[in-house]
Design a protein around this nucleic acid. Structure first.
Lengths: 349, 349
DNA sequence: CTGTTAGCGCCTTCAA
DNA sequence: TTGAAGGCGCTAACAG
């Protein structure tokens, strides 16, 4: 009888094949310096025993763990699930595994995740920081020897590179487009004001209305359909209703669509609409919804590639903040996808 | 100078605190049998050094890895990203990490993932098998000591428990509902005929039309928008066009909507429509789309709970197929969500 | 080409 | 309440 419900070890294989452990080690690591016969025999035993090397033992010997940690606010969110898919693809190309954790945008949970991942000695870390100003997180990561890259949001005052969209310009473009359509009172609608992305988008929106000498009307009270309905009703049943809405994020835009439909407020005749973030069916809704599209796959892919670059070129890895070599901050451009909700007369489909 | 860019070890801590390694070990494992002073001193050193125990070393000592592997066809797919979120939540509750891999429904990739996860000695495995009839996979898993659970699809001829929706009944219900609306020629539209879920849904559809003595019209040629358009055109421009469509999956349904809109075929007057799987905006489209809704979160949650039950009660874990104790196969009921596309006159929103 | 051996970092007896 | 020592499975010298 063998050990109950356990895995075969390299020693087991060596014994069964009548060779030394080194030989087995050589076989599983490419089979260099091993005679054909021995190699075949050992491989047969490996097959028979269903042997798989114990990664933990390798790690202990100083090898890389071949895992990278990914911390996302939510994996059910299409944005982050697409980033995750792209990241895992790159990881796989580098023969690494992706360990997925979810932070809910909670810095405490984020820190916990970070610690667990550290215990597991992930080779690198990919994450969307809950708060971009988080001095203690920044210090911690700079001290940590684990290469890291943030995405969607930067981490200020740290040496951690980032890959984000140009939220500011995307929002400004969208707002200016509405202005070009003649809109005078543009409501900027959303929630989660603490997020870097939202702040940037609001900044872009404000810049655009300011340049056009229009009033900035910002409502960040949206949390769910109900709050969206309440907010929109209060704005549109007022004496001076908006003539356009800029949705700060996906759900805000979708809720706005639904509420307008429910209240029989015609889009785009009565109110023009542009949203941040494209979504499935944006082109199928009537009217079709104009949006600012982020290069989501690129964000995930480039962030992961940046990370593996650090892993493979450790030379620049330990630059600390303050060195003249600044961390790489990549800002990807967004694309304004014009459909009908903004007032454009673009052919359906 | 300390070792370059490496992590502090338990020995480092012990030395710095002027105690033995055993003491430090005790401190990080609850601090029993350690004097207050010593405990405080050691904790201070741990804090100062940013020490985190090396999980690999613990694993080598025989502890659980506190990781579970998740293999999904695609994480960008909303169905699987929701399952993943639910699973990671359960894992977190059990202080475990989720390692995410993507199979693309490719058995070869699936096997690779399985092997990598085995090398990492994940405590358990959660996966949606690419093919439900995969004898070698089944054998492999039965031999493997790693507790596993499949979701969305079972793995036949194996001792691996599963958590799936009642695809058969959901599809049958949907089809019968269309029949109740008076539909006589119901087109069953989709793709990926190899998948368990699709087969089951087709089975349910066929049973329903058979009971009503109607013809079964099944078209599984849908791969993308173009193929959907071609298929629908060929069916609807024929001499005997369908009066209803049953969408076998999300995208098939959505493509159908888009094509009908494009071809100016009125839903539900000209053709009734019910789809399998609910989706964001299904209620917002005009007409709103009636669907069969799966309890996705439950699938992920229950699968993960089943897995941890096995982990915590290893007694029944090693039941092999053929024992009288059959593996647990959980089938969750779906819900027919009636909106307007089927012909129901249900109030909007 | 092949085998022996010494740790990697931690936990767990066993003594003190 | 503390510490010393062995070993988990593997790899990398270092012999043969």
């Amino acid at each position: 009888m063998k050990k109950q419900s356990s895995h075969a070890t390299l020693t087991d294989v060596a014994r069964a094949a009548g060779v030394g452990t080194t030989t087995v080690s050589r076989v599983i690591n490419g089979g260099e310096r091993v005679s054909q016969e021995t190699l075949a025999r050992v491989q047969a035993v490996i097959e028979e025993l269903g042997y798989q090397p114990n990664q933990a033992a390798r790690i202990l010997k100083g090898e890389r763990t071949r895992t990278i940690g990914l911390i996302v606010p939510s994996i059910a969110d299409p944005f982050f699930s697409i980033v995750a898919e792209a990241a895992q693809e790159i990881a796989r190309a580098h023969e690494s595994l992706l360990i997925l954790t979810v932070s809910n945008n909670d810095p405490t949970v984020e820190l916990e995740n970070l610690n667990v991942l550290t215990r597991h000695r992930t080779d690198g870390l990919l994450f969307a920081p809950a708060h971009s100003e988080n001095r203690s997180l920044a210090n911690m990561l700079d001290k940590l020897s684990t290469p890291s890259v943030t995405f969607d949001r930067p981490l200020y005052d740290s040496a951690v590179p980032s890959v984000v969209s140009n939220n500011y310009k995307g929002a400004k473009d969208a707002t200016q487009h509405l202005i070009m359509h003649g809109c005078k009172r543009i409501l900027c609608l959303g929630g989660e004001i603490d997020l870097y992305t939202i702040k940037e988008r609001i900044r872009g929106y404000k810049e655009a209305v300011k340049q056009a000498r229009l009033d900035a009307i910002v409502d960040t009270s949206i949390r769910d359909y109900e709050s969206a309905k309440a907010a929109i009703e209060s704005h549109f049943y007022s004496s001076n209703p908006p003539d356009a809405v800029f949705g700060l994020k996906n759900l805000a835009t979708i809720y706005a669509c639904e509420v307008f439909q429910k209240l029989n407020i015609n889009v785009p005749k009565k109110v023009a609409l542009v949203g941040f973030d494209d979504f499935e069916l944006a082109a199928t809704l009537r009217p079709s919804i104009s949006v600012v599209r982020q290069p989501i796959v690129d964000i995930g892919r480039i962030a992961a590639e940046l990370l593996f670059n650090q892993l493979l070129n450790p030379k620049r890895a330990k630059q600390s903040y303050g060195d003249q070599a600044k961390p790489q901050h990549i800002k990807l451009e967004t694309q304004l996808v014009l459909r009908n909700s903004c007032g454009c007369k673009i052919g359906t489909n």
